[in-house]
């Protein structure tokens, strides 16, 4: 049963990567669909649309980083053996890592989807007024702030404690 700590931690890590990844996929795919429409009309706007399309992709990356840090913390590369104790991570530790992963998992999921919506609207803006694409980008990054805050909390919560 001592492996349960690892299981809990892995669930958390999985959630961080999967949920934020889902969010980013939805956001990017929505934006890409809109961008494809605009590019069909005017191929010259491709670069501007691409920049907007990629903005909701970051949440997935944040989730990945938190997950990666979690893997390092539970010594996934050293057979899950904690150096301090020589065994698997404790159940408490596993649950702690799982909880620490929740902010970016949920925050990333929601913010990426909503950021995708803003990106779609901004791509509409690029279609009509390409010279204002900077403002569209600005509005899209507004949503990202909250993903960043979630990431900050998750990262620090995973990284700082000495999990045993």
């Amino acid at each position: 049963m001592e492996i349960m700590g690892v299981v809990y931690a892995m669930i958390g890590i999985g959630l961080a990567v999967i949920l934020s990844g889902i969010g980013s996929s939805i956001g990017v795919s929505r934006a890409s669909q809109a961008a494809a429409g605009v590019v069909a009309e005017d191929p010259d706007k491709f670069m501007k649309c691409l920049l907007l399309t990629l903005l909701p992709a970051t949440q997935g990356i944040y989730g990945f980083i938190v997950g990666f840090m979690g893997l390092i913390k539970i010594q996934a590369l050293a057979g899950f053996m904690m150096p301090a104790t020589g065994t698997y991570i404790s159940v408490g530790g596993g649950l702690g890592i799982m909880a620490a992963c929740i902010p970016i998992a949920v925050g990333g999921l929601a913010s990426a989807i909503y950021q995708g919506n803003v990106a779609v609207a901004s791509i509409g803006l690029v279609a009509k007024k390409p010279e204002e694409s900077g403002k569209g980008m600005l509005m899209t990054t507004m949503v990202e702030t909250y993903a960043l805050l979630s990431f900050l909390v998750s990262f620090l919560a995973v990284f700082i404690p000495n999990w045993v």
Partner: peptide
């Protein structure tokens, strides 16, 4: 001011992904 925590987020992103790739 807290908005500048994005320096932290983005700065770490490139480093960690680069590290993960090398690994």
């Amino acid at each position: 001011l807290l908005s500048y925590s994005r320096l932290f987020g983005l700065g770490l992103t490139s480093g960690v992904i680069g590290y993960a790739l090398n690994m």
